[in-house]
Amino acid sequence: MARILLIDDMAAVRRAIAALLKRGGHEVTEASDGEAGIAAAKASEFDLIITDMLMPKKDGTDVLLAITRFERRPKLLAISGGSGALSETDALRLASLTADATLAKPFDNDTLLRVVERLTGSTRMEQ
């Protein structure tokens, strides 16, 4: 079981991912934009923060940069479906400078659960 903060501005996507993570046995806190996400991350402790990259107000890059400065930094997973202006590949390439892992949407259920397990489990990720 991992304590996960999930940040995504699209409610339907966020709810679905949260439902999946809960089914996977994890504890999930949701935030609907970068600002709320950073506030939630400061308020309580998480093992993993999953953040969408392209969001209004503060976006994924802001989240990643803010969390990286934390003393006890949770693991970071960036997800993105991209937008007309910025492809998910480019968004995730940017994210990979700070995040521990990246996933392009749409991903399938097993992939997400496996990534979460590897990031939060006892086995450290292969480099």
């Binding site: 479906g81 007309g84 949407k105 749409p106």
Partner: peptide
Amino acid sequence: HELNNLLQ
């Protein structure tokens, strides 16, 4: 890209 998000 819009569809990618909606499919999730």
